[in-house]
Amino acid sequence: MIKVSSIYVKYLLSRPAMGAGGKTGTWRVRKPIVNLDKCIKCGLCWLYCPENAIDWLEDKTVTIDYDYCKGCGICVDVCPVKAISMIDERVV
């Protein structure tokens, strides 16, 4: 006897996973690059990143996940010291 609720929980319930909307990094036309020499480790780019593609690491520097970064450029706009710059994506 299989309960309906257990089938629901096991097979029909959506689970959190990366890339539920696809590999969104392919949408990008411009790519943000962090200049860690200029970075003041404030974490604002992490706080405002809509995609959660930026990690604020233990030493308070940041790293960007280019698999999912959509290239919106909000991090460039909010950076107080202009340590992030956008470059064109080159498709080879």
């Binding site: 949408w27 995609e51 959660n52 990690d55 970064c69």
Partner: peptide
Amino acid sequence: GRTKLIMPGTAACP
């Protein structure tokens, strides 16, 4: 800082 509060790769606009 390293917690994914929203999983990257959503269907939202940039």
